[in-house]
């Protein structure tokens, strides 16, 4: 009786011991994978996700790394990351400077995605936001040196909306203009064609992931004039009329015209002819 109890105890102890060992081993494995994932899933700035890709965290939960998007991309833009690369292994990405996205109107990559890691709700390629072009180096971009380049401006599929040229005075020559490329985030899709086309040895305009390219205003920030527009009137009642202590007949225009002297309503003691004043003598004053 006691004998069998003993052996049962032993086997139960062994069973529990084995279990504990397995549990510890597996927990260690989990820890290892977790730690590895911290670095394996950090996306380098040059790696752009295909159009419609969910936010990175969600994307890594949804993409099964099947490569169907890669297969259906007619321009061989996309590729799957391989073991040893910095991009989370197996996930699709592209490098703008190598092969940019040609912004297919029918977006075959999204249609191919079986999981919805590429959002099927995106049907207008112009609405995609793969990244945002930024003129990262004004010192080497030749437009800033006063040379006519405009290659990025001209190649952009959303020409004159995603990139516009802003004229500035060329202080070096004194008589020419600078044709400065300026990117607008309302229109840029981050396709990377501008980065690919930049004539410099290292592109001065680069497409960056949105989180790197964009700043963000503090969430508590309110811009007064926008709030006023939204509310349809001043939020601080009543809207104070600013008063300037100016001599009669004078006004101040804060929108740039400066001091205004109302000609008509100027009851000045001085006539148009200075001699009149002299003739009048002291009593005239």
């Amino acid at each position: 009786m006691s004998d069998s109890n003993d052996s049962m105890g032993v086997s139960r102890r062994r069973f529990l011991g084995d279990m504990a060992k397995t549990a510890c081993g597996v927990a260690l494995l989990g820890l290892g994978v977790g730690l590895y994932s911290r670095q394996a899933a950090s996306l380098p700035a040059t790696a752009l996700r295909p159009p419609g890709a969910l936010a990175e965290e969600d994307f890594l939960g949804a993409c099964v790394r099947c490569g169907l998007c890669v297969r259906d991309c007619p321009f061989d833009t996309l590729r799957l990351s391989q073991l040893g690369e910095e991009v989370a292994n197996g996930t699709p990405y592209f490098v703008a400077r190598e092969v940019p996205c040609e912004m297919c109107p029918d977006i075959p990559c999204i249609k191919a995605c079986p999981t919805g890691a590429l959002d099927h709700g995106l049907t207008e390629i112009d609405d995609s936001r793969m990244g945002l072009a930024v003129v990262v180096d004004q010192e080497s971009c030749i437009a800033f040196q006063g040379l006519r380049c405009e290659v990025c401006y001209n190649i952009c599929p959303i020409r004159n909306e995603a990139i516009t040229l802003e004229l500035q005075h060329n202080t070096r020559s004194g008589k020419h203009a600078l044709f400065i490329p300026v990117v607008h985030s309302e229109a840029c899709t981050g396709c990377g064609k501008c980065e690919k086309a930049c004539i410099l040895e290292e592109a001065a305009i680069k497409v960056l992931p949105l989180h790197l390219a964009k700043g963000m205003l503090g969430k508590h920030y309110r811009l007064g004039w926008k709030e006023k527009e939204k509310a349809g009137g001043s939020l601080v009642t009543p809207d104070q009329q600013h008063e300037y202590n100016l001599p009669e007949g004078m006004r101040y225009d804060y929108e740039g015209r400066g001091l205004i002297v109302d000609e008509a309503a100027t009851p000045t003691p001085f006539g148009d002819n200075p001699l009149d004043t002299l003739k009048r003598g002291r009593e005239g004053l």
């Binding site: 989990g30 994978v33 977790g34 994932s37 890594l60 939960g61 993409c63 099964v64 790394r65």
Partner: peptide, 15 residues
């Protein structure tokens, strides 16, 4: 399965 649940990503697919 736990890793997927906790991390919100397909963690096991990395390895």
């Amino acid at each position: 399965l736990l890793l997927a649940l906790v991390s919100g990503t397909l963690l096991w697919e990395l390895v």
